[in-house]
């Protein structure tokens, strides 16, 4: 899995792992937009880093619903320096979404599903960027669409 440095076009290998207790002190509202500590009771929180480095570039909170064979992306944010037109790296959110797909696929095989509840005005952009399917209140990836995200980000 890799992200791309926008200025140079260089690829950087990334790792995604569970957020550790000490990380929650680093995950400030100012740089990562949300109170991530609040989520640790109800979700599994993951961080994305460049391999061998310790700066957290993205954070994501997931909830697993085993009875539905589905993982929901509850919250996701790139760090502030990786937002908007001046972002340093590209593909951060895509890698995190693919990671959620990987978790779901490893557990639920052909039934694997990743969903999110979008802000209404962002629906078309998630569909365009990640080929998500519109199910009304929720967007989801399953079957061929989910397999394609794995192929695009994990190979």
């Amino acid at each position: 899995m890799y992200i791309i440095e926008v200025n140079s076009g260089f690829r950087k290998k990334v790792v995604i792992s569970p957020v550790e207790e000490a990380d929650f002190k680093i995950l400030s509202n100012k740089r990562y937009f949300f109170e991530w500590g609040v989520l640790k009771q109800t979700s599994s929180v993951f961080k994305l880093l460049i391999e061998g480095e310790d700066d957290i570039l993205g954070v994501m909170a997931l909830i697993d619903y085993p009875e539905e064979k589905r993982i929901e992306i509850k919250l996701l944010a790139n760090s502030i320096d990786n937002q908007g037109k001046n972002k340093k790296y590209d593909r951060i959110a895509g890698c995190m979404i693919a990671f959620a797909c990987r978790l779901s696929k490893a557990k639920y095989r052909g039934y694997a599903c990743v969903s999110l509840v979008p802000k209404t005005e962002l629906i078309q952009y998630y569909i365009r960027k990640y080929h998500m399917v519109n199910a009304g209140w929720q967007l989801y990836l399953e079957g061929e669409q989910l397999n394609n995200i794995l192929k695009e980000y994990l190979i």
């Binding site: 589905r70 944010a77 959110a93 802000k119 952009y125 199910a135 209140w137």
Partner: peptide, 24 residues
Amino acid sequence: ELAEGFVFPVKLTAKQQKEAAKQL
């Protein structure tokens, strides 16, 4: 840019949650 950098928290009412689950 927001869709490329975020998934925001969205609160649904109990009725909306039920409808969302059915739709999905």
